[in-house]
Nucleic acid binder design. Structure first.
Length: 587
RNA sequence: GGUCCCGUGGUGUAGCGGCCUAACAUGCGGCCCUGUCAAGGCCGAGAUCGCGGGUUCGAAUCCCGUCGGGACCGCCA
């Protein structure tokens, strides 16, 4: 071994011991006589003191040492002289008096500093040198936190009687859902494996196998456009249980996270325990989102009735078209500048609104783009119902109800960020249940499954399958936290007849059903147990626990927004020989 | 597919028609310095301002295009 201890573990209790450490030079402070190095490894940083009484050859070698050189240092641990302790360092009570220094490897000047997060380089630069960026304390801590999260999950589920089973990465393309990543088959030219969007089918088949209480830290792949909270490959805690109802699954997952948060992120508070449970309809109406951020108020207020006879044409035409009028109240925002309001209007438009009427409530009365159209009694009722007071800004949306909710939901989050309304130490977990079973796709003019095609409908709604699909609800559920969807799951279909009906509703032909899902349908004929499960997204949860603004910061080697690996430069071309073996030609 | 924002020494920023022969910080090189911890002091090197075209007497600065990056909408069962 190159070392007897790690840098970050040395404490006052080690004083008097001789230790050997190895690590990187995080900082150096050379006073001409005495010099200090901060030596860093994954565990942390410790101060090495180099006294001028060391042999000349050591002092000469040390004089050349620069940032990020790799050193091995033998020395003894000493309490720092009184007054020289550094309370900002975990190891700040002590220092290592160097006796021997070995240069294990010098380093070129790095493209950027890793010992400070001030002036963070451009993200492309960070990704290109990801192996250096990961040396930052911040990213190192994120990796450690992620490990703790996954370790906690494994331990907790093991105690609950779950077993971890791996499922294939090379599997089968599915017509529903996200775009698949395809893997060409050499032995069957023209045929493809697909990387799993999730182990959905496989975990259900494991239930048919009797592998009750399965879980897996599962990599999932979806070939869709990226976002700050979406990578083309991501990791889920995939779990599935047999002989359970919805609340059995929710209780298990709620228990897992309720115990995990204090264990891995003690600085985080839970918003409430037990977690609130909302219907899909309720969160859309109150928060304008199916993944509400509960850390602050500003709920949507329905003012359709108050403004039913409004003289404002914008409101009139929305109501005539069968729409709704709702508003949100932004605290202390009456003084927002014209420029900011214009910018905000653009935000509203990006969610589908045609404009963004607003009222600034001032001591002199209501002001704003639509103020003159409001009658006195309307204003009074409006303030009464919305709770708006002097100094507040009331922002309206009037359109089809879905657009109104979406717009105000989006503006609500805009104000959250602008006014810093959300408590950063809060983890506001909640359940969203009672999702509609089908969603009508305007583009294809066809019904699609809102969750996925293996989700069980509410049994009571089965008769409405053909007559009124919009009124069928499902046994699906989402776990949300701080405005993110952090898990989703459902009770699954375990009966062949219902599954068949589902595929038919989705417009799949008999041939397609057999070719794509024949194995599932057949499996359900051999005694499939009732089952259900869920899949919390590990990247997003770690992102929230680490207070990171995007999931790239909690993934060791993430891809950029275009799905490229900037470090290795992937995707990239391949040798003609490889294509020939696969019998692939390009146009 | 769409909207918006950003590309200036190694890195991060400033400059936004002439004062730019491009500024500041940090890093880099040299010298000084025995208790610092973002050590300090002095000196020095380092940029055809992403790329191409245009407007102008004059472009880092304005316009068009293009490439790269980020945020968002669509998309993400």
């Amino acid at each position: 071994m190159y070392r007897t201890h790690t840098c970050g573990e040395i404490r006052a209790s080690h004083a008097g011991q001789t230790v050997t450490l190895a690590g990187w030079v995080n900082r150096r402070r050379d006073h001409g006589g005495v010099a200090f190095f901060d030596l860093r490894d994954r565990s942390g940083v410790v101060q090495i003191t180099i006294n001028p009484d060391l042999p000349k050859e050591i002092l000469d070698a040390v004089a050349n040492v620069r940032f990020e050189w790799v050193l091995q240092i033998e020395g003894f641990v000493q309490k720092r002289p009184a007054g020289n302790e550094n309370p900002n360092m975990a190891t700040g009570e002590i220092e290592i008096i160097a006796k021997h220094i070995t240069i294990l490897n010098p380093a070129k000047t790095l493209p950027f500093m890793v010992s400070s997060d001030a002036d963070l380089p451009d993200e492309n630069m960070r990704l290109k040198y990801r192996y250096l960026d990961l040396r930052r304390e911040r990213l190192t801590n994120n990796m450690v936190l992620r490990h703790k999260v996954v370790k906690f999950m494994r331990d907790y589920l093991d105690k609950q009687g779950f077993i971890e089973i791996e499922t294939p990465i090379m599997f089968k393309a599915t017509p529903e859902g996200a775009r698949d990543y395809l893997v060409p088959s050499r032995l069957f030219p023209g045929q493809f494996y697909a990387l799993p969007q999730s182990p959905q089918q496989l975990k259900q088949l494991l239930m048919v196998s009797g592998m009750d209480k399965y879980f897996q830290i599962a990599r999932c792949f979806r070939d869709e456009d990226l976002r700050g909270d979406r990578q083309p490959e991501f990791t889920q805690l995939d779990l599935e249980m047999s002989f359970v109802h919805r609340d059995d699954v929710l209780d298990l997952v709620e228990g897992l996270f309720t115990e995990m948060i204090p264990a891995v992120a003690p600085h985080k508070k839970l918003y409430s325990s037990p977690w609130p449970k909302f219907s899909y309809k309720e969160v859309l109406e109150r928060f304008g989102s199916d993944k509400p951020d509960l850390r602050f108020g500003m709920e949507l207020v329905d003012v359709t009735d108050i403004l039913a006879k409004s003289e404002f044409k914008v409101f009139q035409s929305a109501l005539e078209a069968g729409g709704a009028i709702k508003c949100i109240v932004a605290p202390k925002s009456a003084e927002m500048s014209r420029k900011e309001l214009d910018a905000l209007t653009e935000v509203a438009k990006s969610f589908g609104a045609k404009g963004m009427p607003y009222l600034a409530v001032t001591a002199e009365g209501a002001k704003g783009s639509a103020a003159k159209f409001f009658k006195e009694e309307e204003l009074t009722a409006l303030k009464e119902k919305s709770g708006a007071g002097v100094g507040d800004l009331i922002v309206f949306a009037s359109d089809a109800r879905a657009i109104v909710n979406k717009t105000l939901g989006g503006l609500r989050l805009w104000f959250r960020d602008k006014l810093d309304l959300a408590d950063k130490t809060m983890m506001a977990f909640a359940w969203v249940v009672d999702f509609p079973f089908f969603a009508f796709n305007e583009e294809t003019q066809a019904w699609e499954s809102e969750h996925h095609p293996f989700t069980m409908p509410k049994m009571a709604d089965l008769p409405k399958f053909d007559s009124n699909p919009a009124e069928v609800y499902s046994e699906a559920y989402d776990m949300v936290c701080n405005g993110y969807e952090t898990a989703s799951g459902s009770i699954r279909i375990h009966r062949r007849d219902i599954q068949m009906k589902m595929f038919q509703m989705l417009g799949l032909s008999e041939e397609d059903i057999q070719a794509k899902f024949g194995h599932m349908l057949e499996a359900f004929e051999y005694g499939a147990p009732p089952h259900g499960g869920m899949a919390p997204g590990i990247d997003r949860l770690v992102m929230l626990l680490a207070d990171e603004p995007n999931i790239r910061e909690v993934i060791a080697f993430p891809k950029n927004q275009n799905g490229r690996d900037v470090m290795a430069d992937a995707p990239s071309g391949v040798e003609p020989k490889q294509l020939k073996e696969l019998k692939i030609k390009f146009e």
